[in-house]
Design a protein around this nucleic acid. Structure first.
Lengths: 357, 357
DNA sequence: CTGAAAGCGCTTACAG
DNA sequence: CTGAAAGCGCTTACAG
């Protein structure tokens, strides 16, 4: 039973009273590094225990001007990449003593008034991990001087820090891989065309094909969605010069692409059509898809994000950084391989990288 | 440019000064329903705009004892059901003027000290949507008198409110459907065996088979994970009396089951083996799986959860409620149908319900 | 090491 | 309708 008077939660003052000391002493006991004698500490802890006392983080925030709250803005949670990011980010922040204030953008209503609400909670920093709402939110953060880190996207302006995989390199290596595999008509299903990830993946892919002596790829937008990619695949496979390989700007679309190729066009993947994705999400490993994909290494990306965030909280005048993490092309069964690149993987064996190291 | 002195954010006092009024007047302008004359309101709003003033929700919380923060505890974010829940819940709470404080349990470290941190933020309520950490968290909430609603699980004790789909009914209807489809040896891949969802689905399934004159199903645990279910499927398909249908306690496992049946045993689904899942997550609709599944109607469930939550915030002495929402058996191509139940669906057509209405 | 006191940015009776 | 003042639960100089 909590011992606080009139049903309220116990405060530091209640604890002080019971321990026969001052409220400031109680505060010090719960402040790492503050000086209290062992005897007083023990008395206070005992009183705190008996009253179920928990320090009030809200009151602490008001006076320290540090909420230890980080806003994370996300959308597209049906793309498995984002839940994975959220889980890793949240675990990491919690381990560092921060809490995640989640902001999800509802496509059906304007997000600006909702963003405003989040900012009222005095968050120490913001992670922006979604295309779309970015511009308002980034602006709002700048105005209120809250540090921002973009996750999986880079800013147009030069003064916003970001963490991404090397998207251009990924696109380039996928092109090289498909060319080496003997594909002659690779095509591209684009994501949201205004996004930096899509732009960089597309650019790398086109450059890679050029280096390999192949022309500009056919390109159809798929908007990073399952339905969009299904439609795009139909368009591509109905063409006279049907592609023999499709690079989809993310795995979520690659899955739709494989489904349509197999079930609507009766094609065999990869015998009739090679499909490559991007992200290396969980479903890419499902045997039904066994998707060749470029990985986004979540742990290093999250690690870099949290580091930058915390550095910005300490020192907001931190120089802007654009961290670019190396990814890997993970070879599985959805795309024909270059000669000598081994057989299709069985689960349990480690996927080879390309180019072979 | 913000007009706050020495680089700090503008406060109500700053705004009052600029508008030539009192701090309390500023507060009233930002308090819905408080009385201010139109003229004063205009002056204050003008000053607030020019100073980029945002009311400080932290300070408000301290005095009103309402944070408008709801903690949402989740795990298993690789099971697409949970991100969908999170997105719906978060959108709904934001629309009601609440924010989501996300708590994710990291299986690699003890969660109790981390839960304690969340509770320090004076959350108005907690939604528990994950098996596992529940017992500590529920206990902590009770101790601190914070309202809790369980989502997708029921409590053992009689005094915790919850929202679930009718899991037992789902299991029962799946059994009836498989029996009507002429299956003779249905098996069950269980989820986490201590979970209420698994218990209720299993119970309904067994009862349904009994009603249909079929015996107790073979039952192997799959722990609600892809790998666990893959292993369970292997065990079932290696049996002498190989099952002709498998009901998996969630879709995430049903996908693994289909993958193993097809790719490791060369079986055709549903010709050689019918597979039914539970949840009706996004991937159930992917053509590669086309999974027959029992739906959890997210919108009504989230609606009920938020309603109960807000009622409990207003009046903590609210009677305990266990809301049970009706689900639907969504017929797709992964399970053979009873005669007269129509052909396998093509995308775009509405899935029929079972029993036919 | 310990305590009294100021103050973080608000809301809300209470007077006027 | 408006303002002065108390107070929410803490942290943190400042004295002792």
């Amino acid at each position: 039973m909590s011992g606080a008077r009139d049903g309220r939660r116990a405060t530091a003052t209640d604890v002080a009273q019971r321990a026969g000391t001052s409220q400031s002493a109680v505060s010090r006991v719960f402040t790492p590094g503050a000086s209290v004698s062992p005897a007083l500490r023990e008395r206070v802890l005992e009183a705190a225990r008996s009253l179920d006392y928990r320090p009030n983080a809200i009151a602490r925030t008001l006076i320290t001007r540090r909420s230890r709250l980080v806003a994370v803005a996300m959308a597209h949670l049906t793309n498995q990449f984002y839940p994975s990011v959220l889980e890793a980010l949240s675990n990491r922040l919690q381990a560092q003593g921060y809490q995640v204030l989640l902001f999800t953008a509802d496509p059906h209503r304007p997000s600006d008034p909702l963003i405003e609400q989040v900012m009222r909670y005095q968050v120490d920093a913001v992670v922006l991990a979604s295309t779309g709402l970015s511009s308002s939110l980034a602006r709002e953060c700048r105005r209120l001087r809250v540090p921002v880190v973009l996750f999986n996207r880079v800013a147009d302006d030069p003064d916003t820090s970001s963490v991404t995989v090397d998207n251009e390199d990924g696109g380039h290596r996928i092109a090289a891989f498909l060319a080496a595999g003997g594909h002659r008509r690779p095509a591209f299903i684009a994501g949201i065309e205004s996004s930096s990830t899509n732009r960089d993946r597309a650019r790398g892919f086109a450059a890679g094909l050029r280096s390999a002596g192949l022309g500009t790829p056919a390109c159809v937008p798929g908007h990073y969605s399952y339905e969009g990619a299904a439609e795009a695949t139909r368009a591509l496979l109905h063409r006279q010069d049907r592609p023999d390989a499709i690079f989809c700007a993310n795995d979520h679309m690659a899955i739709a692409c494989i489904d349509v190729a197999r079930h609507e066009f009766g094609l065999s993947v990869p015998a009739d059509l090679s499909v490559v994705g991007f992200d290396d999400v969980g479903p890419a490993r499902w045997r039904g898809y066994d998707l060749t994909s470029f990985s986004q290494p979540l742990e290093p990306m999250v690690e870099a994000t949290v580091r930058m965030l915390l550095a910005l909280v300490e020192e907001p005048a931190q120089p802007v950084r654009r961290v670019v993490v190396k990814g890997e092309l993970v070879l599985r069964g959805s795309a024909r391989r270059p000669p000598g690149q081994g057989a299709i993987l069985r689960p349990g064996s480690a996927p080879p990288a390309f180019p072979p190291s």
